[in-house]
Computed example of a mutant assay.
Amino acid sequence: MTKGDTAADSIVCSDLSIAHTDGRGAPARVIDGVSFTLGRGAALILVGSTGSGKSTLAAALAGRAGNGVSVVGGDALVEGISVRRPGRRHRFLTVAVGYLGQTDGPSLPARLTVSEIVGEPVTSRHRKVDMRALALRIATLLDELGLPLGAAGKYPYELSAGMRQRVAIARTLMLDPRLVIADEPLANLDVEAREVVRAALERRQRENEMSLLLVANEAESVARFDADVLALRAGHAVGFGHGIEKMTWTPSSEADRRLVSS
């Protein structure tokens, strides 16, 4: 059993600072000294205005920050793995954590079918795949997310924006991750589809102790989940609490209160 399998908490973030660099100047901090803990099977929602750093923080914790983004202070243990120095365990991190980026739904691979897209986390990691079992797994996920089984053979251009978003979510859940980090998972979804997605995520919390770290921009999205809320402004944590009605704010955060209470 690996260290990540025995982590008591999904995320332990300790004074974490993250910077962007273009390679020509000094790194610019986008996250500065953020600390929080996400317990096993719990949910946390990151909120904040555009440019607050929440998407960068989510991507970094999922091990998908990309080039030009680095941890410059503190650390975070995600499923027991340091995001500052993951080393060889980076591969395990990307299996244990299902990640949905902000543009994953709109930017699905145009030349792949829905079935190929959803199954990619399996087919990209294993040379030999039981295609019958994989097809059944894909069909189950599509059905759970309210997508018709006939969608499996379609291409992204044949789907609505809401259907593409749910395909991206299905791909995120393909490996039964212990933790899902999702940036605006309810984007482009109508009211009915939002409830289907919320129910699917919360079902995994109850049954599998899957943890959730979500990024949201609107109070409605926050209210749909029974979750702690961490508010960011300019890379700093300025508010925290369980649900938007029970948040404690720093003294200068009046504008941020309005962001999540509207």
Rank of each mutant, 00 (worst) to 15 (best):
V238P: 10
L57E: 03
F225D: 02
G63E: 07
G241C: 05
L201V: 03
G146T: 01
A110H: 12
R194N: 05
V222G: 05
G119E: 13
A135W: 07
L232P: 12
A161W: 05
N188H: 15
T172C: 12
A237N: 05
R137I: 00
N188L: 09
T172Q: 07
L179D: 03
T21N: 07
K54Y: 12
A60E: 12
F92T: 09
L57T: 07
S252L: 07
G66R: 10
G105V: 08
E120G: 01
A28V: 15
E120K: 06
E158G: 04
A133K: 15
E79H: 07
V78H: 09
S107M: 11
T56I: 13
R258P: 00
P27G: 04
K246S: 13
V34G: 05
V47C: 15
A237T: 09
G33K: 12
G33C: 09
A62I: 02
E207G: 00
T123D: 08
P27F: 10
L213I: 04
V71M: 07
V12M: 06
G39E: 12
A193F: 11
H242G: 06
T94C: 10
M131R: 15
I169N: 03
V12D: 09
C13L: 12
L100G: 03
G153W: 09
A234M: 09
V191H: 13
A151D: 02
L16I: 08
L189G: 06
H20K: 06
G101L: 07
L230F: 06
V114Q: 12
R178T: 01
M210Y: 02
S10E: 01
D176I: 00
R194I: 01
T2F: 13
A231I: 08
R111M: 11
S52K: 06
G243W: 10
Q102Y: 11
V229S: 06
A26K: 14
G80N: 04
A161C: 04
V196T: 15
V229G: 04
G150C: 07
D104T: 08
T103V: 01
L212C: 06
R204D: 01
R198A: 13
R84C: 02
S107I: 00
A26V: 11
T6G: 00
L232D: 09
D176V: 03
V95R: 15
V83R: 09
D104L: 01
E207N: 03
P27C: 08
A219K: 13
H20G: 00
V69D: 04
Y99G: 02
G4F: 11
